[in-house]
Structures are given as structure tokens and as C-alpha cells.
Design a protein around this nucleic acid. Structure first.
Lengths: 230, 230
DNA sequence: CGGGAGATTGACTGATCTCAACCCGGGTGG
DNA sequence: CCACCCGGGTTGAGATCAGTCAATCTCCCG
């Protein structure tokens, strides 16, 4: 555990948005108290919670979604190592408007609200980096709005697969490095599970994709791009 | 014109996110060169443009939207006096991902990118305020994603009317302070013009809303909230 | 082996889109 | 002064995409 903390510390200072700080400035961060591990299936925070800060993902994958009417939910994004979650509510001070759920074993570093706000004021480069993260997310959200409003399910499913590839990559056999349930793919594309399944089967019939275990294999990236109108 | 600039300057320093600065710090801002007026119907910037900074709206209403396939477009928001537009691309340095269009006579103050970036670094309170704006927009975008994906057109139309009321207010007769074309209401709700018209007529039949000239009158706010599932 | 979660398929339904016709009011040129 | 035109707004009919419900299947696990 001691070593783990050592590593996390060096990770923070070298590879994350905290690289803008010196060792001294970072002493504000009582890391030991705010290093959390959670099991697969654990809800990290819930829509409506007041959260005490934001989380930097040190290891694992987190599903971020909003719950809707009767059991349906809309997935906004999958966050992975190096990403931060919960920072929107941390900044605005509002309740969380999403739920974060650990898809696998996940380690998190909690950065408390007071610390964040203080660091923003004291370090412009850090503030700018946070702004860039927020603005990038905003751009992606805007894209998603247009896509859900205007594209067909078929197009959206193709697009989702491309996005997963961009976010998580593929191995040498073009197999996605992430395994999702059909329901999750559906809720990412904003459709029902059955409809998503039908579209996936169709893409498989056409040879554009394949299934290897629980994972999707991308046979024809170009065609997928075309189908997704991208 | 001299007086107009005088007013704009005092507006900036007292009522906007620039209130965090002193008169001296603000001398960076060569206001005279960056005060723009544009007529109704003018495109302020286009999707794909590189923009030189963001715009603070001093007077008028601006439609912000993304264009999609064959003539359809998705309206993301209407920005009005005191709002800023184009700041996402200003921060990320990417091309604009939306188009901004003046719905009426509009006056803008351009804040150049270099100035913004400098001010962010020098003034934490300003950076934090920008962050809050970005995060608020992000929260709204997330809501919109879920709504378009899960709500029916009827629900969305009701919601759009409520949002317009919140954003622009009503006069003493409960008439919205903004007049939109049917097409605009449709593209705000993410549906076709004809469908939007049908839903609006239905709401009128039910007595929940009425039409006065080009404007919508809200007869029954409560029911509208209920219909919109809010 | 039984149970349960997730995946798949079929059949049906219905909300929404599209196309096309028509209306209405304002502005304009002859 | 009037016929025409044009940008919206409205309505109808038909086509279709996608959601729902229900049955079945396939693993995987205890």
C-alpha cells in the first residue's frame, strides 16, 4: 500500500493535470486519505448526491450516465485512467447530475472541492487545463445532441463503435479493448436493447464487424465510418 | 458612439464576468476596436471557422446551432444579453463546432483569445467564473441529451416552452418575450416542423397554451411542467 | 442440474417523418 | 389598385423506423 501511494503520487505529479504544480504546492493534497478502491459494480456517486470533490481515475473504467424514466438510462461517456469524473458538480457546487459506476476494479484519487477551488485561483495553467477539459466535454456533448436528434439508430450504432475504438483502442486483431453489454451499447446510442441488437447483427451480416467473445471486432473501419456519417 | 462605448465599458466592469478586474487590468482590452453591431439575420461565426476570440452579447438574441444532414439543424441554445458565445473554441483552439446567428439587431463585444488566455492565468476568480459557465452549459447539454433520447416529442415541446420562459421571461399576460418560427421550435426540440406544429396545436386545443401574434402565451404553467415531465 | 443474466428473434404497434397540397398575409411590380 | 409571389403555417395520408412485449436460447455458475 505504501508503494502504491508512492506510485500514485508520482503519477499525479507527472502525468495528470496536476503536473502544473510543484511538490510543495501539492502538499495540500492529503493523498493517503483520499485514495479509494472500488469493486466492479460499485456506484461511485449517484445522481442527486452532493459530492465532496472530483475523482481522478487511477485505474479502471467508469460508466457515467443519467437515469431517465422507467429503468432507462442514457450513458454520456466512459471514463478511463487519467480522466476525471464529477468535476462539473464540484465546480458549480450543485448536486451531481449523473451517476458514476465502476465497470471493473477501479482506483480513484479524490480531490476535495476546497483544494480544487484554491488551486484554480493560485495556478492559472491548472485553471486553463480544467477549462480545456470542460470545453472538450462540452463539444462532445453538443455533437451527441445533434447525432441523437438527427441520425438513425444504424448510424448511431456505427458511430458508437468508432468512438469506442477511439477511446479504448483495439488489439492487433482489431478487437475492441472493452467489452460492453448490449444494453450498454444501446443506452450509449440512445435506443432500446433489442433495436441495438438488431443493428449489430445486421452489421455483422454485412461483415463490417464481428463478435469475439463479448467483444466487438472491427473488420472494416472505413465502411463503419461511412455508415456512421462521420 | 463615444457614449455607447462608455456605457459598454461600464457594463463590462460592473455586470459581467469581467467585474473581477480593475480598470487598469482591463486596459488590455482595446474595446473600441472590438465593438461590433450586426443586423438581424447575420451569421456571426460559422461552424468550421477559426474564431479570434469569444463574444459577449451586449444587446440582442443569438441562435446557436449545429447543422446536420440536408438542411436540418439542431439548435443548442439561444444566447442573450450578458451571455457569451464561441468561448468553447476559444479555449480549446479548435474550429467552431456551432454556428451563431443574430435573431435580431445585435451588439457584441469581442474578447480576443490572447487576452482571454492571459486573463485566465492572471486572475483566478475570472478563471473560476469561466469554468462555472462552461460547467453550467455542460450540465444543460447533458440534460438535453437525455431528453432528446428518452422523451416523446410532446414532452420535449412542453419542455422547450418552459425553457423559453425561464430564459426570456413572459410579460404580464404570460406571453413569451421571444417570437420564434415553428421551424426553430422544432429544431430546438429535435423534431420536424410539421410534428412540432401538430403538438403545439394540440397543446392549444387543450388550452395549455395560446398564440398571440407570433408569440406563445402560457395559460397553464403547471400542466405544461407535468406534460414535460420536469 | 436448476437458476439467472444476458442475448436473440418474431410479431405487433404506434409515434414520427416525409411528401404534398393548401392557406394566409404582406409586399411588390405592373 | 390588383394580381402575383413568397415565406411561413397547417393539415392530411401513407410509409417506416423504432419501441414494446413475449418467447426462446445460450452460457455460466453455484
Amino acid at each position: 500500500m505504501e508503494e502504491e501511494l508512492e506510485n500514485a503520487w508520482s503519477y499525479l505529479l507527472n502525468d495528470t493535470l496536476f503536473r502544473h504544480f510543484t511538490n510543495e504546492e501539492m502538499l495540500e493534497l492529503p493523498l493517503k486519505d483520499y485514495f479509494l478502491s472500488c469493486n466492479k459494480g460499485k456506484v461511485i456517486y449517484n445522481e442527486g448526491d452532493y459530492i465532496s470533490g472530483f475523482y481522478l481515475i487511477y485505474r479502471g473504467v467508469v460508466k457515467v450516465y443519467k437515469t431517465g424514466i422507467d429503468g432507462k438510462y442514457q450513458i454520456l461517456r466512459f471514463a478511463k485512467e487519467g480522466d476525471i469524473i464529477g468535476f462539473r458538480s464540484t465546480i458549480t457546487g450543485e448536486k451531481a447530475c449523473t451517476t458514476a459506476y465502476a465497470l471493473e476494479e477501479t482506483d480513484l484519487i479524490l480531490i476535495r472541492k476546497e483544494v480544487v477551488l484554491k488551486l484554480i485561483k493560485s495556478n492559472g495553467a491548472f485553471a486553463l487545463e480544467l477549462l480545456k477539459i470542460a470545453c472538450t466535454e462540452l463539444g462532445e456533448a453538443n455533437d451527441l445532441i445533434k447525432d441523437i436528434a438527427q441520425k438513425t439508430v444504424r448510424e448511431r450504432i456505427a458511430e458508437v463503435i468508432i468512438h469506442l475504438k477511439l477511446g479504448f483502442g483495439t488489439d492487433k486483431n482489431h478487437i475492441l479493448n472493452i467489452a460492453l453489454k448490449r444494453e450498454e451499447i444501446a443506452n450509449l446510442a440512445g435506443t432500446s436493447t433489442e433495436t441495438a441488437i438488431r443493428q449489430l447483427s445486421e452489421l455483422k451480416q454485412e461483415g463490417v464487424i464481428g463478435f469475439v467473445g463479448k467483444k466487438i471486432k472491427i473488420n472494416d473501419h472505413e465502411t463503419l465510418l461511412k455508415i456512421g456519417n462521420m
